[in-house]
Amino acid sequence: MSAERRRRLLGRLLGADGPLLGIERLCHVCVDTTGSDGASIMLFHDGASRGSLCATDGLGALLEEVQFTLGEGPGIDACRDDRPVAEPDLAAPAAPRWIAFTPSAVAAGARAVFGFPIRVGGVVLGALQVSRDRRGPLTDDQHADALVLADMAAEIMLLLQAGASPGELAVELEQGANLHAVVHQASGMASVQMGVSVDHALVRLRAHAFRTSIPLVDIARRVVERTLRFSPDGEAAPDGEAAPDGGNGADP
């Protein structure tokens, strides 16, 4: 039964493109088999999201970014608690959770969110996140598919990483990944501006994003473009007159 499930999902992963095994395809297969509107694979290390390996357009990418900005959500809980997380009615949850994530996710159009840990042995590598624009739980079958896909994601990640040069991320993993490079660049710049460590600078950037309801990556882009800077007391101030164009730039 489980072997049959694995065979069927593996067949879909390989798909019409032939035997090219890619992690990007997994998110699309996940959206199809779970009847969802978005999916993403989040990387998790040292208690925090490190960006995503893949995300479907729209809801998948939006929620990945919301979680990265706010540091909470279904994928992060799935990683921290090492178990599947389900919120089938995000707009009216039975018990309140994710004080910051929930309003942003609902505003982005999500009504139900699910997270599945991606683990190897006892180690959690990340999470498969699934979201829908309508409320309601996953069926047992969809839930079982998502669990197997999370397992497959772990296998594929290791299989691809096994071929990488030492110290490098496998090229195949890199292709669809969004590691939010611009956020780390901005942390470096803001740390000099404020005279604090880069980790502390990231906390300040996050706080500013939360306070202004602007996505962290957009805040970061403004810092890197030098249209926003932080003073040593941590206050943000526009740097120059140009209005930032935060919506469309790609991370370098």
Partner: peptide, 28 residues
């Protein structure tokens, strides 16, 4: 498997530190 997980996380950390350093140098 654990070795590969470590390699993956090391590669990620490496990337993050390089981006942070670029930011530090760019600003200074």
């Amino acid at each position: 498997s654990h070795e590969l997980v470590d390699q993956l996380n090391t590669a990620l950390n490496r990337r993050i530190v390089i981006e942070q350093a670029k930011g530090v140098v760019a600003e200074r």
